[in-house]
Design a protein around this nucleic acid. Structure first.
Lengths: 328, 328
DNA sequence: CTCTGTATTGTAATCGTTTACTATTTCTTC
DNA sequence: GAAGAAATAGTAAACGATTACAATACAGAG
């Protein structure tokens, strides 16, 4: 593999000069610059980023750490981060934590070990607790999807309480009084959506059906099991809200198996707008999160912070959208 | 950041000894080893992988280059690669090419620049042409999803011809004679599936309806447009086969909008088994690819090759499965 | 012509590891 | 107890870039 010394020798200059040319630094005569560039071309030379990183402590790789790659929400975010990173000349390492603090820690260690440029993180509750107040992570970091109360960390979120309130209100205004809710466990997201749900009930003077409100791990299988339980209740719900698309998929399967018709027997709404939401019949009414925007904003915040570490921190709250279809 | 020299000083040994301890090399007294380990613990030392990579030319990062992260097929593959990599202590950089040779080249350059350990690639046609015969990539590489005729490269694929033949036969045996097919353009995958499709027609002595057979870029939108065209044909198809799940999603939307009933007015089958295939009504009959297996096999082949570069190359052909549901 | 300042270039140290080589000690074995 | 082998540890040279510093050339001012 050709190295900077080879170029220097071929061009009859020192490695310092070649380095200056490659980095577009001043103090190189135009003709020298041109000659070096030609030789670089001819010899098909590319700088070794490992050596460059070691010496000058700069990396062109960022990490994206999410709790579940199989969640369409994170897939879309990941796509956005990837697009933005590419535009700025960065690459992305994608890590999956499965909501497992051990795996999360391993991923965070990776940052340090590989001297990456920064990280976009959807943290576990455990990590979030560490980041409280003015804890300083010593590394550019943007937290997404979960609210963090820390002055040193950038944050991109949506207003979950308000969104859940809107979605629940929609359900109520279409005639549902007895409503079941399945919320993701172990994240601020789930708790905030639950809170908005409760507020909406209160707004409409409805007593919450506590036996129909469940927290569970946010997986399709658990959504299925929980909804099966709700449907076996002596006084089953007339409407169900799920706090993400995986839970919704499980819920739909349970409803289908129970031979109930949507929306006549039971109404259904959910957070997230996966591709299939409009493929099913009746199509699903949802709160759509601006997933692509979330990813892109996070990536841009991170890259700006990498380029200027003294930049002031900010929290970006993005708007959600209620998409009314026929499930309600 | 604490470095190996700090540990060496604190333990009263040389950096060479510390390095030997950390790498579990022989020739160090147990008590010295123990002392060094304790100090490593106490000082919270972690080896700098960048320096390690530079000196010993080893990386713990592999790249996964796919043509479309938003395709559920690649998402599942990506999950599997991630899982396997994690088990072996590797991390994964995920790159998206959008079937764009320029982006693909940028991703392949990344390998060189960052001195990554190896790559799992779903290549564009262009790249595939480069890899013909005995071209030597100089870097551990596994090609997935597309067949490569190169003795130096490992390959994980499915038998697309056979699978398409089975799927088409299923459609025919359920009474369809006039069948439309939408195939992905620009990949061996699409061509092979088309070939299997044609074989099945021949097996059943059916003359192919050439005006109902289309090649297009494998996106939902194009699937929608193509099927809309087919349905406007004076003699429209009685059954449709799509060669991936994105095309299927588009096709379903087109059929729905045309107020046609599945399977009574028109039957429908597809390659790939996305989560929503069983959520829609009627549920979709599909060929399921062993996506997780593909990813895991590729990752394991790659890591074995990294660990032993002289290992003989192999091609793994995985089995597909016909999942019969109600769309046909 | 000398002095000062700036532009250009090279020399060599440095980033944090690994490892070839050497030196010393300890163990076997006869 | 001597010879040779094996185990232990340290010294210093890599890996491939960047960059502080020094050296030289050259221009313009006086």
């Amino acid at each position: 593999m050709v190295k900077i010394k080879d170029i220097a020798d071929a061009a009859g200059v020192s490695t310092a000069t070649v380095s200056r040319v490659l980095s577009n630094k001043p103090h190189v005569r135009p003709e020298v610059k041109k000659r070096v560039m030609q030789i670089v071309q001819k010899m098909n030379y590319r700088r070794n980023r490992v050596a460059q990183n070691l010496r000058s402590n700069t990396s062109k790789i960022i990490a994206l750490i999410v709790s579940d790659i199989e969640n369409p929400f994170f897939q879309r975010v990941s796509r956005a981060v990837d697009d933005a990173a590419f535009e700025y000349g960065y690459s992305v390492i994608l890590c999956n934590t499965d909501e497992n603090p051990g795996k999360e820690e391993a991923s965070l260690n990776l940052l340090r070990d590989e001297n990456l440029a920064g990280v976009i993180l959807s943290p576990t509750q455990q990590a979030l607790d560490n980041f409280r107040e003015d804890f300083d992570f010593q590394m550019p970091m943007v937290i997404i999807d979960r609210y963090v109360n820390n002055l040193n960390i950038d944050n991109v979120i949506i207003d979950n309480v308000q969104a859940a309130r809107t979605l629940t209100a929609h359900l109520i205004e279409h005639g549902c009084q007895r409503i079941g809710g399945i919320f993701g466990m172990g994240s601020t997201t789930g708790r905030e959506r639950h809170e908005g749900f409760m507020q909406a009930l209160k707004d409409h003077n409805i007593t919450p059906a506590t036996d129909l409100i469940k927290f569970t791990s946010p997986k399709a299988e658990d959504g299925y099991n929980m909804v099966m339980k709700l449907l076996q209740n002596p006084d089953p719900p007339r409407g169900i809200l799920t706090s993400n698309s995986l839970l919704a998929a499980g819920a739909l399967l349970a409803i289908r198996e129970s031979k109930l018709a949507i929306p006549d027997d039971i109404a259904m709404v959910s957070f997230d707008n996966p591709t299939w939401a409009k493929l099913i019949d009746p199509a699903l009414t949802v709160i759509e999160q601006p997933t692509y925007e979330i990813g892109r904003t996070a990536a841009e915040l991170l890259i700006k912070r990498i380029q200027d570490p003294t930049r002031s921190n900010r929290q970006v709250v993005l708007k959600t959208k209620l998409i009314v279809r026929q499930s309600c």
